[in-house]
């Protein structure tokens, strides 16, 4: 692979809190990294160093102050910093998936439909998307009797797995994972790790935060050290 799937350079992000007189909290400065297909880059660093902020900035959920985020999208590189919302949405719908720790969906929608929705939006037939959704929910150990129920009533671990299934129901070339196994027991953790491994081997470029050292060792091909500002900026190891 000559062209990375994701290339970040000079990325900076700070938060300005107007309620506190415009207090500026710089979190990221001059972050540069690149991830190619088939790689999994683990973000490491102490709590509060800005790992989540970096991940969310890559997804466009946080607005970067400076720098560049290039994503390979439809065989071209697309700049996400300062991009039009519809460009970001297009990249999100077809190229870049994100697994957050929290499931945020319309209440009272059955779990299977929650999982199927992103694929249907991309044009997959509803029935096919649902078959795939049921397969993923099964692999992730969600019992079939829960599939027709809305996930709001599920346990934290079940919700997290529904969330993972939803993100993996589309074969995104770039996957951003924010502690995908955080609230899972050992069995379910291994199932999730297995699925993500499959994606990586199939050529997905992955950036993730994995607190669990075992998960990180199983998935990461490289690590990137996110150092708190004040110390030296991180470097790929």
């Amino acid at each position: 692979m000559t062209m990375p799937a994701l290339r970040v350079s000079g990325l900076a992000k700070s938060f300005v809190v107007h309620a506190q007189g415009g207090l500026a909290l710089p979190v990221l400065r001059n972050v540069s990294l690149a991830v190619s297909a088939g790689e999994c880059l683990a973000l490491v660093g102490p709590s509060g160093a800005g790992k989540s902020t970096l991940l969310r900035s890559l997804y466009g959920n946080y607005r970067a102050d400076a720098g560049s985020i290039l994503v390979r999208h439809d065989k071209a590189l697309v700049e996400l910093v300062g991009a039009e919302p519809r460009t970001v949405l297009d990249v999100r719908s077809r190229t870049m998936g994100f697994v957050s720790q929290f499931l945020r969906v319309i209440p009272r929608v059955p779990a299977v439909d929650v999982v199927a929705a992103p694929a249907i939006r991309l044009g997959m037939a509803a029935r096919d998307a649902r078959v795939r959704a049921e397969f993923l929910l099964g692999v992730l150990g969600i019992p079939p009797k829960l599939w027709p129920l809305p996930p709001a009533t599920f346990s934290g671990g079940e919700q997290q797995r529904v969330n993972i299934a939803r993100s993996l129901n589309v074969d995104y070339p770039v996957l951003l994972l924010d502690e995908p196994t955080a609230s899972l027991d050992a069995d379910n953790r291994d199932r999730v790790v297995g699925l993500i491994q499959q994606r990586r081997e199939a050529g997905a470029a992955i950036v993730g935060i994995f607190h669990d050292a075992g998960v990180r060792d199983a998935l990461a091909t490289r690590v990137y050290d996110v150092a708190p500002l004040g110390s030296a900026p991180g470097a790929a190891v």
């Binding site: 938060f15 969310r56 959920n61 946080y62 607005r63 919302p85 970001v88 949405l89």
Partner: peptide, 9 residues
């Protein structure tokens, strides 16, 4: 801006 960006950041 993007809905989630405006609400989260």
């Amino acid at each position: 801006g993007l809905t989630d960006q405006v609400l989260d950041d």
